[in-house]
């Protein structure tokens, strides 16, 4: 579904991604790990079309479509979803209004009529239950005054609402307490099917106990320097990144 070839990207003239290659097929879960500042969030931003970054080289195809040509909104409507490492607060825009607009824009893209108010509220309720999102949060402005963990839970709630084909979870586990981690991971697992895929960015093996990856990649200095099965995450947890740096001759 997703094919990334030799992807280079920079911000303010500084190259961050230096040739990423990655193929994701339906039903797969890919974990991306790597030291701070290696470019994991940059990759998420570039895949979702953040205009702050410039793609300087390479290609990305999503179900055959040239993803890099699409606007951020069209990428979302095509089924790409990013759970932000740092979700944005939007004072004055209510969660309900935000989600209704998003859901209806997705429907419009598919040629469907807007959802009725009652159907929409029913859908909200259903998905809120899935991630055990507090009712009070859904009545507030988007992320405004949410705690770190609440924001992350809200990301997964939005993911549940939009039912993406590819979800990129950028450190969704950070800031979550142990119970919340399980709830969020359960939510992700419930949404999983043979037709959708996930890229899970994390620093910790813990999340991967719940969301078991098919592949683990190490991103280092803007490149994927190692890929293996789920056992790689355990090895990294135990040994850190030094041995990989050594392998690279650093």
């Amino acid at each position: 579904m997703l094919e990334i070839k030799n992807l280079h990207a920079s911000i303010n003239g500084k190259e961050i991604l230096k040739g990423i290659n990655l193929t994701v097929k339906p039903g797969e879960i890919h974990a991306i790990m790597g030291p701070n500042g290696s470019g994991k969030s940059t990759l998420s931003s570039v895949l979702t079309g953040n205009p702050a970054f410039q793609v300087t080289e390479g290609e990305v195809h999503f179900y055959g479509k040239n993803l890099l040509e699409l606007s951020p909104e069209d990428r979302s409507r095509e089924g790409v979803f990013l759970s932000f490492q740092y979700p944005v607060e939007i004072p004055g825009v209510s969660m309900v209004n935000f989600m209704r607009t998003a859901v209806n824009e997705h429907r419009k893209y598919k040629g469907l009529d807007p959802m009725s108010a009652s159907d929409f509220l029913k859908l909200m309720r259903e998905k809120k239950d899935l991630v055990e999102l507090d009712n009070k949060l859904a009545n507030r402005s988007v992320n405004e005054g949410f705690s770190g963990g609440e924001k992350k839970r809200n990301e997964i709630f939005q993911m549940a609402m939009l039912e993406p084909r590819l979800s990129i979870l950028d450190e969704t586990d950070s800031g979550l307490d142990i119970d919340a981690l399980r709830i969020v991971a359960n939510g992700v697992n419930k949404l999983k099917s043979k037709d959708n895929a996930s890229i899970v960015i994390t620093h910790y093996q813990r999340l991967l106990d719940y969301i078991v990856p098919d592949f683990v990649h190490v991103l280092y200095k803007g490149r994927i320097v190692k890929s293996a099965g789920k056992e790689l995450a355990l090895e990294l947890e135990e040994k850190g990144y030094d041995w990989i740096k050594k392998e690279l001759g650093e």
Binding site: T48, G49, N50, P51, A52, S71, P72, E73, R75, S76, R77, F81, L82, F84, P87, V88, E89, I90, G92, V93, N97, F98, T101, A102, E105, H106, Y109, V142, Q158, L162
Partner: peptide
């Protein structure tokens, strides 16, 4: 905020309007 909204499928125009 604009990018966050767009990344959820909300058009740039609509996102600006909401903001």
């Amino acid at each position: 905020a604009l990018f966050y909204m767009r990344s959820r499928g909300i058009s740039e125009r609509e996102a600006r309007m909401l903001l």
